[in-house]
């Protein structure tokens, strides 16, 4: 898989470390309670189809990306810097 890095162009997915669902960026508020944190840490939507997910460019510029990818076909539909994604989705 080749990930279209917004700054560096197409990069081999092997240069990246995978973390998981991009919803991990929205951590519950500290006072949200145990149940909210349990959901945040352990539960996942795990969709078959389009999935937004966090990839870390560990062997590159060490940026975090939000990659949009189809989990059924492995087709990569887009990638943006996680910082940009956080700004645009907040």
């Amino acid at each position: 898989m080749l990930i279209p890095h917004p700054l560096l162009g197409l990069r081999d997915a092997q240069e990246f470390t995978y973390l998981g669902d991009a919803s991990l960026m929205s951590r519950p508020a500290p006072e949200a309670g145990e149940a909210a944190f349990c959901d945040y840490v352990f539960l996942r939507d795990n969709p078959a189809g389009v999935h937004r997910e966090l990839w870390f460019h560990e062997q590159g510029d060490r940026s975090w990306l939000v990659v949009t990818r189809d989990t059924v076909t492995h087709e990569i539909l887009g990638a943006e810097l996680a910082s940009d994604y956080a700004r645009s989705s907040s």
């Binding site: 997915a13 092997q14 995978y18 078959a48 997910e53 989990t71 059924v72 076909t73």
Partner: peptide
């Protein structure tokens, strides 16, 4: 190492 419902993997 990444979410997948494809019954095939990649070359790396």
């Amino acid at each position: 190492g990444y979410n997948s419902y494809a019954q095939r993997g990649n070359l790396p």
